[in-house]
Amino acid sequence: MSTWILRIWLGLVLLFVFMPIIFSVVFSFNSDRFPTIPLGHFTLHWYQTIWADPDVWTAARNSVIVSLSTCVLATMLGFCTAYTDYRYNFRLKGAYLALILLPPTIPLIILALAMLAWLSKIGASGQLWSIIIAHTVLTAPFAMAIIRLRLNQIDQDLEAAGWNLGASEWVALRAVVLPFCRPAIVSALCLTAAISFDEFAVAWYVGGLNKTIPVLILEIVQGNIDPQVNSIGSFVFLTSMTLVVLAQLLVFNRVMWRSA
């Protein structure tokens, strides 16, 4: 009986979590500028508006550039750190790991201010690549965590077996470690791209006039109630979810392990 109460409780938690997501999709097809119950009629008006808006297109292009560059850089950083942590022990390793892993524990707005000030100081703010730098720092820990978890499963002898069969350290890395980590690397690429694609505080601060999609949303929301936000949001949701589902499939689906 108490299991039923718990089950209903979990249902309520999920309802709370998903209500804003579901409603934002619903509102994006709803004719009312300010939706309530009962809903207005079905419309594609808001989608047509954003389709015709050049600002949205520019922002989308920026977002794609930023998230693609970020995911590649962050995954490289994450891999190097995960591999170093897996393979080596050294003095100050704790400090080394903290240096990589701490960014997500610092509130974004603080990171945004610090990045803005520092990048302005060294003349690197206000550019699209300023956002890429900041997002790489921000998302690399996630890539590191995913790849490190995969390296936990590697047989300690596997890399040594590569050396033993004639592979130098670099070759064994390419021929043994990288193929072993492939599913995790693809997951890390997807997840870091998705995080970067949604991040607004840091992008808003360091990007100057270069707006990404979330920054555009932020500015629209600051203005007034505009259901365009919902249609952009639904579009962003679809993109991120594709990336996440892809990442999940690669983690859980062993068929994808097969090397080409």
Partner: peptide, 27 residues
């Protein structure tokens, strides 16, 4: 897995959605 989904939906859009849901003449 379901609970991971929200991390990849725009927090801004979700907040905006709440704004409309919670409003005085909202849902």
């Amino acid at each position: 897995f379901l609970l991971i989904i929200p991390f990849f939906t725009s927090y801004l859009v979700r907040t905006f959605s709440w704004y409309v849901i919670l409003a005085e003449s909202g849902v």
